[in-house]
Design a protein around this nucleic acid. Sequence first.
DNA 1: CCCCAGAGGAATGGGGATCAGACCTTTTCG
DNA 2: CGAAAAGGTCTGATCCCCATTCCTCTGGGG
Lengths: 239, 239
Amino acid sequence: MSGVLDATVFAPVRSTSAFEETLERLGTAIKLGLLAPGTRLPAERELCEQFGIARSTLRQALTALVQSGHLHAVRGRGGGTFVADAPPPAEPPSDELLAGWRDVCDQRLAVELGVAVLAAERADPKALGPLDALVHEMQDRLEDFTAYRRADVRFHVALAELTGSPRLVSATTEVQGAMGDLIHHIAHPPEVLAWSNAQHARLLACVERHDAHAAVRVMTEHLHGTEHVLAGLLPSPGA
Amino acid sequence: MSGVLDATVFAPVRSTSAFEETLERLGTAIKLGLLAPGTRLPAERELCEQFGIARSTLRQALTALVQSGHLHAVRGRGGGTFVADAPPPAEPPSDELLAGWRDVCDQRLAVELGVAVLAAERADPKALGPLDALVHEMQDRLEDFTAYRRADVRFHVALAELTGSPRLVSATTEVQGAMGDLIHHIAHPPEVLAWSNAQHARLLACVERHDAHAAVRVMTEHLHGTEHVLAGLLPSPGA
DNA sequence: CCCCAGAGGAATGGGGATCAGACCTTTTCG
DNA sequence: CGAAAAGGTCTGATCCCCATTCCTCTGGGG
């Protein structure tokens, strides 16, 4: 019958170890700026309980992040583990991610479309203040892509939080993490960012008047924009 | 700052063992009817290689599915492992699934909306024959929910395959699995199924003329239908 | 009729990941 | 000065997963 289906059902099973998952979680949160530089993580004995893992396992992840320069640890009372102020340069995207960049965009489309619809349906217009502030912050950061991108991520995550769906929030952070790996190394002229941010503003207006259909239109346009940028700069499916 | 965000970043890490993942994969594929009754699975020595796991691990999953009645094994030459002809009755949904049913619906909305848009954008109208056949099959099965549902699942998975995105296909099967657990135990009058299937037909028409916006409207309506049914029959958020 | 190929079933030992817990070292606050 | 709070270290037990081998059943070809 369907080779695609069999390929899905019988595809290799990837068992993610607790260590890997923890490393991934903290790593993306830091790289995305969700954990701002200088932030202090909960104490190890506390954090391992939140994660539901043993402290030794947690420490493997923390040690790795310290050695890669994303965290630094301070001993003694009043110490702790802190997000590094000078983040290490991002590594170039892995080959497998590059090969599947269109798939990542497709997943992003699904997640963000769902977020747009549900946020428009459910969000309390009075709760959009912080979102609006982020749009203005982005407007002030058109020349500094790193700062712009941090606000961008917060914007999309905050929008996801408005849906009240935990799965959509975590799906958003995941997909933003993948996108970050892809776009971090390509040029972002201020004009492009300005255009992109204008769509943020329009999107917010749609959410404010509970217009889900319009939100979908704006979001679709927004995502296709970055997709076209990627299509031009990344290797073709064949390469 | 944001409690929701911290709850997402520091949420418990669930490390899925290879055994669990395999059991889940095969189990949902069987329950969804993607592996039809009577189907013969690949030989164990072959299957464990496809999954990328050891045979003993694979056998744990197979043994569990045999004992639960979803599979039966035949020894000797020409034997094999077959999907049971008389599937065991589905267990009632777990409490945690019930508690998060709205979250499941939200995730489904995202996945199916993404599928609708991308299928409408990319699908070759000439490749819609099988989809159309499934709509007609559902039309003939309005009185038999089990049969209807099998075709329904195939329809949504086939639609996802049209997008060409592996992630969306697997997301679709996952979310359909969760939906199956939720809706299997509630009543489905033929009128409701007919109404639902009419939306399938309309959706297909949208895809055929590459009308993504209309596809979104129809799909949204389609999903809200089942969501309202669930809202009436499942416990409220508080319970 | 015999025997072997092809299938599931079972047992072994090793290696790595994870856990739980105790203990050490550094630092600051009372 | 000493207790408290934090990271850093170590150890033994346990569980999961792997690789390998061998066993058992059964149908088909010679």
